[in-house]
């Protein structure tokens, strides 16, 4: 079943397209990473999916309904982000109690166990928590809803490395026990890629690619070799990134659409490119990098 379907989805702010002609389909029971640079339109897209904001044009369907003002979509989806405000009059344990009242699939035991594990106090107020603690609570809340579509927008803001690792482990284990559709946007792809099935790469509000993580891992290779030889060999290759090591050594990242033996036989050093790097190169504004600025 398709949980999310968008066609030509566009959102315009002050004549700028934050999300631009975006067409994508996301199946049920998948974990998809929504990846892109700051301001690429990730948050805008996710908020439209959650029914918080309304598209300027195009169409968006969540469980075959238009999420903006759909009670059905609201009951079966949730967006967790670091700007979430919870009512200040309620304590953390009261918030969990409200979650249980509203969300039919709420898992009380799960919420309580994590609540205790991460040492929250029942009487604490969300507003008074530290940034990392807020994020941790929000994630617990989001997972406990067991919503068929659970969206996390930069869920680990402010968490320390150990907690981040724990939370992604929790997310995976909970997903294994209760498969559902999960979207996670993150700046740190390398931290989440192991639990992702697919990656949605967004650049300038448009869909750049939608592939499985495994495909993305084999999308490009890094070649290192003598500048003259490598430069010549590259003439009909799709170069994503170039870096000059020294005057006669060069490193390039190319799309992997040729047998690797070809490059190895030329004596180039061939290494894989991590998906996070592929994403960076694909959305870079030029072939070079920050080093070019200093030339």
């Amino acid at each position: 079943m398709n949980v999310i379907e968008t066609t030509g989805l566009t959102k315009t702010y002050r004549r700028m397209n934050a999300v631009d002609d975006f067409t994508v389909t996301i199946n049920d029971n998948t974990i998809t990473g929504v990846i892109g640079r700051n301001g690429a339109g990730k948050t805008t897209l996710l908020k439209m999916l959650a029914g918080l904001i309304k598209e300027t044009s195009g169409d968006v369907r969540v469980f075959h309904e238009h999420p903006f003002n759909s009670l059905y979509a609201s009951a079966n989806s949730i967006l967790i982000d670091d700007q979430m405000l919870f009512p200040e009059a309620l304590t953390l344990s009261e918030l969990l109690a409200q979650g249980a009242r509203f969300y039919p699939g709420w898992d009380e035991a799960f919420a309580q166990q994590l609540f205790d594990y991460f040492s929250f106090e029942p009487k604490q107020i969300h507003e008074h928590l530290s940034k990392g603690k807020k994020s941790t609570f929000n994630m617990i809340f989001g997972l406990a809803t067991r919503c068929a579509l659970t969206i996390f927008d930069e869920p680990t803001t402010g968490m320390d490395a150990a907690v981040r690792k724990d939370m992604y482990r929790v997310l995976l284990k909970d997903y294994l026990a209760h498969p559902r559709t999960i979207l996670i946007s993150s700046h740190h792809l390398e931290e989440v890629e192991h639990i992702l099935e697919n990656i949605l790469l967004i650049d300038d509000g448009t869909l750049h690619l939608h592939k499985s993580v495994e495909e993305l891992k084999e999308y490009a290779v890094r070649l290192t070799g003598p500048t003259a030889l490598l430069g010549q060999w590259l003439y009909n290759k799709d170069v994503l990134h170039k870096k000059q090591h020294s005057s006669d050594m060069m490193e390039v990242v190319v799309k992997r659409d040729f047998p690797l033996e070809q490059a190895e036989r030329m004596g180039f050093h061939v290494t894989p490119v991590a998906p996070s790097d592929v994403c960076i190169y694909l959305t870079a504004k030029s072939e070079g990098g920050i080093d070019d600025v200093f030339k």
Binding site: V3, L71, Y72, N76, P104
Partner: peptide, 15 residues
């Protein structure tokens, strides 16, 4: 994945 149906009446009362 399980999908839940809710009614306007239910949710208004809960809210």
């Amino acid at each position: 994945m399980s999908l839940n149906k809710v009614t306007t009446r239910q949710i208004v009362m809960k809210q």
